[in-house]
Design a protein around this nucleic acid. Structure first.
Length: 493
RNA sequence: GGGCCCUUAGCUCAGCAGGUAGAGCAACUGACUCUUAAUCAGUAGGUUGUCGGUUCGAUCCCGACAGGGCUCACCA
């Protein structure tokens, strides 16, 4: 590989440092402070107060800027909490350290120790009486005030993105906070966090194309899970009653600003609850998150105000199709008429699709994007809900809801089907759809029917797309902005 | 997978009816002990994504390929 001028010069300087006996990658420093702890310690203190404090602080981090004055220099040190200024001067750190300092570059990891003072302009600064190189950077950083904007480099070399774009770090800090809050909330409700297989002999619990892999010793094909659903329901059957799992699902499908092949989902199941209980729980959870993050139930997502104040709108699929898609009773209940309606709107619907599937296609095409404020869409057709309990008054629909916010599906929940005979019938219905050409239709799962035959308590379950939720709470337009290492094509060298 | 767009210095971007490229920051040399995009003087840095074609000549026009973005389809 051709070396450019910049790298050559850096390596030359590094050679000079080595010759001086400087350890380029030290391992013996203790850091007691952070940008945040120093600011805390100095809160409210003026120049005299700082002098009276008479305390040395230690700070380490990446040197992000150097403003050099010959015998002294201001540097910006960036650590996990932010940036802090230090003043490195020859007569304080000593001749030797200063010589080393002069050879360093923006991007190096350094250590300073010293007392605090305020500069003429009032900025809190560490007056270094000790300065050390901790780790030497060979490569230069991206430019200092435009930062790194090339999205491809940002995703492929996320470390550079995190170094140069403080907002990116804030997004991922918040992501972590959200997941912590969710765990707190679920734990408070007496749910048990569990882990179930990522590799499954059958990819069940959802409707999607799986990734396939192979176990050599057992000589068997395995699938990366598309959902943990069937395993979690085994745990409910086993008496754990309230369980949740926050983990990755894998779906072998397209990539977009709302889809990554591996994505994080929280699924939870609660025995002796119904989908209506879960609507209340979901409202409570989202409000808990918003209160803790924004201190408010209102916030902005992509220039639109979202208001989480409960109760949220609840509307059945049929009502929504009637009011938002302009369908009449006949079209809603007649397969041929529904097909005709879809065709008239320019939708490409397979002729073999049953009524329920056609209705959902129309719903996705005409209604979904209109659901900006939080909305529970309820009562999904039984054909598209192979694992949901039927509605008592109209058994062609199920006790199920999906939560829409900002025109996107965020959660999916239902009262679980626990009748093994009905479940077998549903799987058979799915097999028929598979034979009609729907390769994503659910497979027959005898094992799972066996579980239901043991008696699963009446239960409701829900899945919440964590990445999408994080997008909402961080005002991110693309799922890649909330996943540290989003999937990209591998680049040939 | 389809459509549209993008790829020029380490980074952020210019540019050219087709005549082998510029700026700022970063880098290098020098000056400077209160700067905040420090300042001042100077220097250097490029196989213009890759491969072909057209042409006397291609960074520019055409084609293929690679990667990326948006979007449609599939889906959460």
């Amino acid at each position: 590989m051709e070396e450019n001028e910049l790298l050559k010069r850096r390596k030359q300087k590094i050679e000079e440092l080595k010759q001086k006996g400087v350890d380029l990658y030290t391992n013996d420093c203790r850091v007691d402070d952070t940008t945040a702890s120093i600011i805390d310690a100095a809160a409210g203190l003026d120049q005299d107060g700082l002098a009276a404090l008479d305390k040395s602080f230690t700070l380490a981090g990446r040197m992000m800027a150097v403003r050099d004055f010959g015998k002294g220099a201001f540097i910006s040190i960036q650590d996990r909490k932010g940036r802090f200024q230090a003043f490195v001067r020859k007569d304080h750190v000593g001749e030797d350290s200063f010589q080393v300092f002069k050879k360093l570059d923006v991007g190096d990891i350094v250590f300073v120790k010293g007392k605090l003072f305020r500069t003429k302009t009032g900025e809190l600064t560490v007056d270094a009486d000790e300065f050390k190189l901790l780790s030497k950077a060979v490569r230069p950083l991206p430019e200092k005030w435009h930062g790194l904007t090339d999205v491809e480099v940002r995703y492929r070399q996320r470390h550079l993105d995190l170094i140069s774009n403080p907002k990116v770090r804030e997004v991922f800090v918040r992501r972590s906070l959200i997941i912590k809050l969710i765990r707190q909330f679920m734990d408070d409700k007496d749910f048990l966090e569990v882990e179930t297989p990522m590799m499954q002999p059958r990819a069940g619990g959802a409707v999607a194309k799986p990734f396939k892999t192979h176990h050599n010793a057992l000589n068997m094909d395995l699938y990366l899970r598309i959902a943990p659903e069937l395993y979690l329901k085994r745990l409910v059957t086993g008496g754990l009653e309230r369980v949740y799992e926050i983990n990755r699902n894998f779906r072998n499908e397209g990539i977009s600003t709302f889809h990554n092949p591996e994505f994080t989902m929280m699924e939870f199941y609660q025995a002796y609850a119904t989908y209506e209980d879960l609507m209340a729980l979901t409202e409570e959870l989202f409000c808990y998150l918003a209160e803790n993050i924004f201190g408010s139930l209102k916030f902005t997502y992509q220039d639109r105000e979202i208001d989480l104040t409960p109760p949220w709108r609840r509307i059945s699929v049929i009502e929504a199709l009637r009011s938002d898609a302009g369908m009449d009773e006949q079209t809603l209940s007649d397969v041929a008429k529904a097909h005709e309606f879809a065709k008239g709107k320019g939708m490409d619907v397979p002729a073999s699709d049953p009524l329920g599937k056609v209705l959902m296609t129309i719903f996705e095409e005409l209604v979904e994007e209109k659901l900006l404020q939080p909305t529970f869409v309820t009562q999904y057709p039984v054909e598209v809900s192979p694992l949901s309990r039927r509605n008592v008054t109209d058994p062609s629909f199920t006790d199920r809801f999906e939560l829409y916010i900002a025109g996107r599906e965020i959660a999916n929940a239902f009262s679980e089907l626990n009748d093994p005979v009905d479940q077998r019938g549903r799987f058979e219905m799915q097999l028929a759809q598979r034979e009609a050409g729907d390769e994503e239709a659910h497979e027959m799962d005898e094992d799972y029917i066996g579980v239901l035959e043991t008696a699963m308590p009446p239960t409701a379950g829900e899945g919440i797309g964590i990445d999408r939720l994080v997008m909402l709470f961080t005002d991110s337009a693309s799922i890649r902005d909330v996943i540290l290492f989003p999937h990209l094509r591998s680049k040939e060298e």
